[in-house]
Amino acid sequence: MIINNLKLIREKKKISQSELAALLEVSRQTINGIEKNKYNASLQLALKIAYYLNTPLEDIFQWQ
C-alpha cells in the first residue's frame, strides 16, 4: 500500500492544485485524482512532483 502525502505537503508549501498542475503541465483534475488516490502517478510525474515541491519522493509517496 502507498501512503500519499501530496496534499499535506502541497498545502504546507502554500501551493494550490492549479499552480502545481500548471508547473507539471497536467490538469488540476489530475492532481486532485492523485491526492484522492483515484489515480496513480506515473514514475515520471511522481519525480516531477518531488522536484517542483523540493521534497524527496519517498516523503510524498511512502510504501507501507
Results as ranks from 00 to 15, higher is better:
18 S>F: 10
10 R>H: 03
60 I>Q: 01
12 K>G: 12
35 E>Y: 02
30 T>I: 13
54 N>P: 01
49 I>N: 00
37 N>Y: 07
11 E>M: 10
15 I>W: 05
26 V>W: 02
59 D>G: 06
60 I>F: 03
36 K>L: 14
49 I>F: 04
42 S>Q: 05
3 I>D: 06
8 L>S: 14
22 A>C: 13
28 R>C: 14
40 N>K: 14
19 E>P: 02
15 I>P: 01
53 L>V: 03
39 Y>S: 08
36 K>Y: 06
23 L>W: 14
6 L>S: 00
61 F>H: 00
60 I>M: 05
62 Q>W: 09
53 L>G: 01
33 G>I: 06
21 A>L: 03
14 K>W: 05
56 P>I: 04
27 S>T: 10
18 S>V: 11
10 R>K: 02
25 E>K: 15
2 I>M: 11
3 I>C: 14
56 P>A: 07
48 K>P: 00
25 E>R: 14
43 L>T: 09
44 Q>K: 13
16 S>D: 04
11 E>Y: 06
15 I>Q: 03
30 T>G: 00
45 L>D: 02
18 S>H: 11
60 I>D: 01
58 E>I: 08
12 K>Y: 09
28 R>H: 11
16 S>F: 06
1 M>P: 11
20 L>K: 00
19 E>T: 11
20 L>S: 00
38 K>A: 11
60 I>N: 02
19 E>M: 09
38 K>V: 11
53 L>F: 07
44 Q>G: 13
3 I>H: 09
10 R>C: 09
40 N>I: 14
24 L>F: 00
5 N>G: 04
11 E>G: 05
48 K>L: 07
36 K>A: 14
59 D>T: 08
52 Y>C: 13
30 T>W: 08
2 I>Y: 12
56 P>K: 08
4 N>C: 08
26 V>I: 10
45 L>C: 07
16 S>M: 06
44 Q>Y: 11
55 T>R: 04
54 N>R: 09
58 E>Q: 12
45 L>H: 02
22 A>S: 11
64 Q>K: 11
25 E>Y: 08
45 L>Y: 01
49 I>K: 00
19 E>L: 05
17 Q>S: 06
29 Q>D: 15
37 N>Q: 08
32 N>F: 05
27 S>R: 08
45 L>T: 05
18 S>I: 11
55 T>L: 04
54 N>V: 06
59 D>Q: 13
64 Q>P: 12
48 K>E: 05
58 E>N: 12
53 L>P: 00
55 T>D: 03
21 A>S: 06
48 K>I: 03
51 Y>F: 14
32 N>W: 09
32 N>I: 15
64 Q>R: 10
23 L>D: 06
19 E>W: 04
12 K>I: 09
52 Y>A: 14
25 E>V: 07
33 G>P: 00
53 L>A: 01
16 S>G: 07
19 E>G: 09
29 Q>I: 09
38 K>I: 11
37 N>R: 08
18 S>P: 05
21 A>Y: 04
32 N>D: 15
41 A>L: 15
53 L>Y: 03
41 A>M: 14
49 I>S: 00
38 K>W: 10
41 A>H: 04
29 Q>T: 12
38 K>C: 14
63 W>K: 07
4 N>L: 09
21 A>M: 03
58 E>F: 10
52 Y>H: 13
23 L>R: 10
45 L>I: 08
62 Q>K: 10
43 L>K: 13
14 K>Q: 12
15 I>S: 00
14 K>P: 02
37 N>I: 02
16 S>H: 05
42 S>W: 03
24 L>R: 01
10 R>Q: 02
61 F>W: 08
57 L>G: 07
56 P>Y: 04
59 D>S: 09
50 A>M: 03
41 A>D: 01
59 D>M: 11
4 N>A: 03
24 L>S: 05
10 R>E: 02
33 G>S: 14
49 I>T: 02
54 N>A: 11
23 L>E: 08
27 S>W: 04
